Computed example of a mutant assay.
Amino acid sequence: MSEPRLIVGLGNPGADYADTRHNVGFWFVDRLAAELRAALAPQGRFFGTVGRAGERWLLQPATFMNRSGQSVSALAQFYRIPAEEILVVHDDLDLPPGSIRLKKGGGNGGHNGLKDIQARLGTADFWRLRLGIGHPGERDAVAGYVLKAPRREEREMIDAALDRCLIAWPQLAAGDTAAAQRILHVKPPQESLP
């Protein structure tokens, strides 16, 4: 893994969406910004809220999920950041709450934010930090599910996963994929039960 120079948290802007499952990427960037003491502020030319920590940029697109690529590509092109130095943090329906997976490239799993980023960058070869939010069980229920707040016990598991991401941040920042995955890819408590 290359050292990430752009860390993107996906979500939807505005108070109505702040606590919804779709915004776990925003939650991570908020925590990372606090950890790195990076002030986040709106920047119109990048269509999002932006922070800087040394040579790294933190980004929360303000374009709504399905146009996330507009914001990501604007900042990446301006600072000449290649796809392999971008880490996108997003919600994942295919993982249970509390689960995390770090991977590079691959499909978008129907995630509109990833789909738009792939289209705008012209490649899928960026890193993803997939944060599990669980699945409602029926395909027709997905849109409403991701735009609702997680139940209290789910939120606790997601918060624990976010804590684990911060613990793994030094390894992520150094580009040490294997060491980061050893911290991130542990089974959350509900998966460990017989």
Rank of each mutant, 00 (worst) to 15 (best):
P170I: 02
N23D: 15
G110A: 12
F47H: 15
G109F: 05
R128H: 08
I7Y: 07
S192C: 11
F26A: 05
G175P: 06
L193S: 04
L40E: 11
A41Y: 06
A179I: 02
P96W: 02
I117Q: 12
I100F: 07
L131Y: 01
E3M: 12
A38Y: 11
N108K: 03
R52I: 06
Q70T: 13
D91S: 08
G144A: 14
S99K: 08
A180Y: 04
R31C: 01
R130D: 03
D16G: 14
I7F: 13
A41T: 11
H185I: 03
D116P: 01
G44F: 06
V72N: 08
I117Y: 09
K187N: 04
L166W: 03
A174H: 00
V50T: 15
Q118A: 06
A18D: 08
I167V: 07
E55I: 10
K103G: 07
A124F: 09
R101T: 10
Q118V: 14
N112R: 14
W27N: 06
G110D: 12
L102T: 12
R139T: 09
D163C: 00
Q43K: 15
E154V: 02
Q181A: 09
R164V: 03
R139H: 04
A119R: 15
T63H: 10
G69S: 10
L172C: 04
L93G: 10
I81P: 07
K103N: 12
A161V: 02
R45M: 04
P136R: 04
G9P: 15
R52D: 13
K148P: 00
D91L: 02
Y145S: 02
P61E: 05
A143V: 08
W127G: 10
Q118N: 05
A18P: 06
D116I: 00
H135S: 02
L59H: 15
K115M: 06
L87A: 13
R52C: 11
P82Y: 06
I133H: 00
T123S: 11
G137W: 14
I167A: 02
L129W: 01
A83I: 08
D30A: 11
G44Y: 10
L193V: 06
D125M: 10
P42S: 10
V8L: 12
A33Q: 02
M157G: 10
V186D: 02
C165M: 03
L147D: 05
E156C: 04
A53G: 11
A39S: 15
A179M: 05
S99A: 15
G107R: 09
G48P: 12
R120I: 03
E85Y: 09
I100R: 01
R120L: 15
C165E: 00
D92W: 04
E153P: 00
R155C: 00
T20P: 05
L32H: 07
L114T: 08
